[in-house]
Amino acid sequence: MSLEQKINQDIKTAMIAKDNVRLRGLRAIKAAILLAKTEKTQVEELNEEGEIKVLQKLAKQRKESGDIYRNQNRDDLYQIEIEELQVIEEYLPKQLDKSAIEEVVKSIIAAVGATSVKDMGKVMGAANQQLAGKADGKTISEVVKSFLI
């Protein structure tokens, strides 16, 4: 079952259960998937990797918006963003913890032979490829910087 089909099924379930919080998050996911499918740059069918990228983008947007709302003391809007983020994260692959990311980055640095910040691009390219869907770019970047500085 594709992610889109699962989302449609879960929307029906949330409507029957009158779970407005979950329904709002699911509709956001569905809209983003439909938008990604109709983009002109998307020639072939949206595959599982593309769906994960769409979900990661949504999660990142919710986190950033939530941070802005919290800094502006808008707890009502912050709560909405966090609720939607929780629904989106249910459909993302399990994220690695920081120690697991550090282990992967250490092995990549050793394999690439990176010694300074100048080599960060090589390490980030390999790390993003190896950790795709398992960790966000910001966390990977922070870990790589901590090892190369």
Score class of each variant (00 low, 15 high):
57 K>D: 14
48 E>Y: 03
36 A>N: 09
21 V>F: 00
67 D>A: 14
36 A>D: 09
49 E>M: 06
39 E>Y: 05
28 A>E: 15
12 K>C: 05
24 R>P: 01
31 A>G: 07
40 K>M: 06
24 R>G: 02
64 E>W: 07
27 R>K: 12
37 K>H: 09
32 A>E: 14
27 R>W: 03
31 A>F: 06
21 V>N: 01
48 E>G: 06
16 I>Q: 10
57 K>H: 15
15 M>P: 00
28 A>R: 13
56 Q>V: 08
13 T>S: 03
40 K>W: 02
60 K>V: 13
17 A>I: 00
31 A>C: 04
52 I>Q: 11
34 L>H: 07
51 E>G: 06
38 T>Y: 11
65 S>V: 09
41 T>N: 14
38 T>P: 02
35 L>R: 12
51 E>L: 02
22 R>P: 00
31 A>Y: 04
63 K>H: 13
16 I>W: 02
66 G>L: 05
18 K>S: 06
66 G>V: 05
42 Q>K: 12
55 L>H: 11
41 T>C: 03
61 Q>T: 15
28 A>G: 03
60 K>W: 10
42 Q>W: 02
30 K>D: 09
13 T>P: 00
60 K>G: 15
63 K>L: 15
35 L>M: 13
68 I>W: 05
12 K>Y: 06
58 L>Y: 14
23 L>Q: 00
15 M>T: 10
43 V>F: 05
19 D>N: 11
44 E>Q: 04
52 I>F: 09
55 L>R: 13
60 K>Q: 15
29 I>L: 07
14 A>Q: 00
60 K>S: 14
65 S>D: 08
25 G>P: 03
48 E>F: 01
60 K>I: 12
34 L>C: 04
30 K>A: 11
64 E>C: 06
13 T>N: 04
44 E>P: 01
50 G>H: 08
33 I>L: 15
51 E>S: 10
51 E>Q: 11
19 D>H: 05
28 A>N: 06
30 K>I: 04
13 T>L: 09
14 A>M: 03
36 A>L: 10
68 I>C: 05
27 R>I: 05
14 A>T: 00
45 E>V: 08
46 L>W: 07
30 K>T: 04
50 G>D: 12
68 I>V: 14
15 M>Q: 14
66 G>H: 07
27 R>E: 03
42 Q>E: 12
49 E>V: 08
41 T>Q: 12
62 R>V: 02
33 I>T: 01
51 E>V: 04
33 I>N: 02
59 A>N: 13
19 D>M: 01
54 V>T: 15
